[in-house]
């Protein structure tokens, strides 16, 4: 076997007797921190979403209240009373009767 082939073989076999590389000792703490961070992020995003929904609902309710109040506080026009409507109705009908 020539030098080149020997060198290639030795290089290919250089992983023989390899030991497992030890993982980081503080791995669990880091994983927990990442899980907590993601959890916090998710819950703050959820909280923001709920706040937006609540704000939307509050706006809707406020608008409804304003409209209702406006409706009830507007003085009723004489045309709106039943007797006025009835007299108005008959006054329109009377020319047809003849």
């Amino acid at each position: 076997m020539n030098t080149k082939e020997t060198w290639i073989d030795e290089t290919l076999n250089s992983l023989d007797g390899i030991h497992r590389a030890p993982g980081p000792p503080d791995l669990f703490i880091k994983i927990q921190a990442r899980l907590d961070h993601t959890e916090n992020k998710r819950s703050s995003r959820q909280l923001a979403f709920y706040w937006r929904v609540a704000a939307g609902l509050a706006l809707l309710i406020a608008l409804n209240i304003v409209v209702t109040l406006y409706y009830h506080h507007t003085p009723a026009s004489p045309m709106a009373t039943p007797s006025a409507v009835a007299s108005d109705y008959f006054s329109y009908l009377s020319p047809i009767k003849l």
């Binding site: 290089t11 290919l12 250089s14 992983l15 030991h19």
Partner: peptide
Amino acid sequence: GILLENKERSAIL
């Protein structure tokens, strides 16, 4: 985890 004598060769591998 590489044996010291194989360090350089294993880096090439």
